[in-house]
Simulated scan of single mutants.
Amino acid sequence: MIGLYIKELREKRGFSLSKLALKAGISKSYLSYIERDMQKNPSLQVLSKIARPLGVSVEQLLQESTQREIKLDREWQLLVQKAIHAGMRKEDFLEYYEFIRFKNRHKKR
């Protein structure tokens, strides 16, 4: 989940994927893999390069992403279980999540 947190920070700072990759000195495609959790274990050196232009420490990146993974109250757990039993797949959740983010971004404009 560190990738999602990096993406959120990047968007809050107003950086495009290209701009953060350039500032961090890593490839745009590698940063994209990290943000999409296709690269789940970036090295500390890479995390350091990403953290610097985002204005956070590597420790903050790791701590915040770990805390986000753990928090899921009982009501959410039941809701997710019901959705899974109804046939919802992980891809479906991700699609709804991306739709809500898209909708919220356009609401702010």
Rank of each mutant, 00 (worst) to 15 (best):
M1I: 11
M1A: 11
M1N: 10
G3K: 06
E8K: 15
L9E: 01
E11W: 08
K12F: 09
G14E: 00
F15S: 03
F15W: 02
S16D: 01
S18I: 11
K19T: 10
K19L: 12
K19W: 02
L20Y: 04
A21W: 06
A21H: 06
L22S: 14
L22N: 10
K23N: 11
A24L: 10
G25P: 15
I26K: 04
S27I: 01
S27H: 05
K28N: 04
K28H: 09
S29Q: 15
Y30C: 01
Y30T: 03
Y30K: 07
L31P: 07
S32M: 11
S32W: 14
S32D: 12
E35H: 06
E35F: 07
E35T: 05
N41C: 06
N41Y: 01
L44I: 11
L44G: 12
Q45W: 12
L47N: 04
S48F: 03
K49V: 10
A51N: 10
A51W: 03
R52E: 13
R52H: 11
P53M: 06
P53K: 04
P53A: 08
P53Y: 02
G55Q: 07
G55H: 01
G55V: 03
V56Q: 03
V58N: 04
E59C: 08
E59V: 09
L61T: 03
Q63L: 08
E64F: 02
S65V: 02
S65T: 09
T66M: 05
Q67L: 15
I70W: 05
K71Y: 00
D73A: 00
D73P: 13
D73F: 03
D73T: 02
R74A: 10
R74L: 12
E75Q: 13
E75I: 11
W76R: 14
Q77Y: 01
L78T: 12
L78K: 15
L79Q: 13
V80T: 04
Q81K: 13
K82I: 08
K82M: 11
A83R: 03
I84V: 13
I84E: 08
I84Q: 06
I84N: 10
H85E: 15
G87A: 10
G87N: 10
G87M: 11
G87T: 07
R89V: 01
R89I: 03
E91T: 07
E91F: 02
L94W: 00
E95D: 02
Y97T: 14
Y97P: 09
E98K: 15
F99V: 13
R101C: 14
R101E: 14
F102D: 15
K103N: 12
N104D: 12
N104G: 14
R105V: 12
H106S: 12
H106L: 14
K108I: 01
R109T: 14
